[in-house]
Design a protein around this nucleic acid. Sequence first.
DNA 1: CCATCAACAGGAAAAAATACCTTTTTGGTA
DNA 2: TACCAAAAAGGTATTTTTTCCTGTTGATGG
Lengths: 218, 218
Amino acid sequence: MLSHERVWAAIDTLAERYSLSPSGLAKKAGLDSTAFNKSKRLSVDGRPRWPSTESLAKIIEATNSSLDEFIGFVEGRTAALSVSVASARQTSGVPLLGFAQAGAGGFFDDAGFPVGQGWDLIELPGQATENSYALQVQGDSMLPLYRNGDVLVVEPAAPIRKGDRVVVKTLDGEVMAKVLERQNAAGVDLVSLNPEHPDRHIPIARMEWIARIVWASQ
Amino acid sequence: MLSHERVWAAIDTLAERYSLSPSGLAKKAGLDSTAFNKSKRLSVDGRPRWPSTESLAKIIEATNSSLDEFIGFVEGRTAALSVSVASARQTSGVPLLGFAQAGAGGFFDDAGFPVGQGWDLIELPGQATENSYALQVQGDSMLPLYRNGDVLVVEPAAPIRKGDRVVVKTLDGEVMAKVLERQNAAGVDLVSLNPEHPDRHIPIARMEWIARIVWASQ
DNA sequence: CCATCAACAGGAAAAAATACCTTTTTGGTA
DNA sequence: TACCAAAAAGGTATTTTTTCCTGTTGATGG
């Protein structure tokens, strides 16, 4: 979100990234050196003072930064630090840890909530991709992998390869979720994880589209 | 890049995306209805007039859009889409469809991207919950459900019940993901979906914590 | 220890954006 | 075609941000 605090934090982060003080950043951008004084971020009457859009454009250009980088600072997902859980909470992602690391001490409190340092960060679906959508499983045909009611997040723009879990739609309207075993000019071979359902071969001529499943609810 | 022209174009695109005129968008955001008049985009002396950063924050919030979406408009890489799918994008969720419905016509374009009417909406994880975190699977012990490298999103605050997929950590540091078969005062019974690994009973005295898995990457 | 300079606090003036206002234009509907 | 409401042109007053300015503080080098 675009908030007063976030915008000022992004200005500070941009300055830090390019080894400048806020005052030095302002000068480099052709602004008054006191433009980004912390004492000027609130008005006399306590009202938040926003840097102008034109000022933001100037500092991005002056540092040869990019709008995407600056927005990364605004959103808190771009930082040069090893994140603590608290830092991770300030971003749109969630803290990530390997299972092996999870077994060690120092990553969880007594109730099982994540704490401390050393976490990586991961973006969850539906935030950065504009084409993803969700399909809800109906029936038991995809057990044991997917149960009735599970939600699958599908990313049609994602490249697919052997081993991926995919959704395939045939020209006669059948929609199925299976594992991609092979894809070539003739069609695709799909592996079912339910022994009661056979593996499938779908010729290209019968396939309307195929898309990768990126997340599944549990 | 952040330029005068691009910012105004983004405002126009945002208005179009949400079926508003620039004047309607300004009003919806609590600004003067004439704030985004094209006649006000240049000053009388020909100097470019920039909408303020605070105004941009207000229109993004008023439309339940996102900073990323707006920046997509600024950079010209995001255009107005079909209203229904676009309506779904108005929220922090993604469009949702049942598998049975997916078989019918009218929900996908030829390339498999979601279009048209009739979509539901679902919230994805990690946005509204402050305690969720992710664990990354290492090794093959959780096949066929979870593969090496998969990411599991865990919600320690979520209530758990029979049939849920959970992560359990024991006092001696073991971390495992299995299906909850039974939970009582003595401990928990866990079902493994890998026949090469036995089902487990974990006494309460040996269990540090248990948490529900809400999403898994595929 | 002292001089120098960058950074910053904070007030006042100038510049820029928004709110307020009147009028005209445009588009939808009966 | 008439009517109506929304949109927009465009002017003025008010509010907000930036520039200009003075003074203080802290870091650094001699």
